[in-house]
Design a binder for these strands. Structure first.
Length: 141
DNA sequence: TAGGCCATCTGGTCCT
DNA sequence: AGGACCAGATGGCCTA
């Protein structure tokens, strides 16, 4: 566990004034806050898992240091654009090999797992939705 | 020691 | 009402 806010800890007890509400209401809101904190923690862990998955498929060029989240996103963007360009060029210059290119079903979101080399990973849905988002963004650009 | 990166908490907003 | 998502604040850890 990393840092905690000193005054408003996991209990959430010091952030509001117990006297201003009935003890029961106070307890309810405290319990809700704790549950919300736990959900948020879990959500962020899922997000980090997705970032780890992304780091695995993005080129690092021998960098021993782990890419930051921002760097990972930048790298993913560059990587996708580069692959896209390669594919476009290949399609343009090698019509006879069209069949070979078309065989890359991995370009479909449903088949990302075969690109990534595993069948199912936690947070995969998040990655898929991100790719959908990217595609939509490109369509509207 | 400063700056970058990160985890966590929190309150607000939107959606179901 | 409650959950998901988001952005801001805060403090810890690490490196140059």
């Amino acid at each position: 566990m990393k840092s905690r806010r000193s005054s408003c800890s996991d209990s959430g007890s010091e952030c509001s004034e117990p006297d201003s509400k009935s003890p029961q209401k106070f307890e309810t809101s405290t319990r809700r806050r704790m549950a919300a904190n736990a959900r948020e923690r879990k959500r962020m862990q899922g997000l980090n898992t997705a970032f780890d998955c992304l780091r695995k498929v993005v080129p690092q060029w021998g960098q021993d240091k782990k890419l930051s989240k921002y760097e990972t996103l930048q790298m993913a963007l560059s990587y996708i654009m580069a692959l896209n360009r390669i594919l476009t060029e290949a399609q343009r210059h090698s019509a006879p090999h069209r069949q070979w290119i078309d065989s890359f079903d991995c370009a479909q979101p449903d088949a990302y797992s075969c690109l990534m080399g595993y069948d199912s990973v936690p947070g995969q849905e998040y990655i898929h939705s991100s790719f959908y988002h990217l595609e939509e963004h490109q369509l509207h650009a």
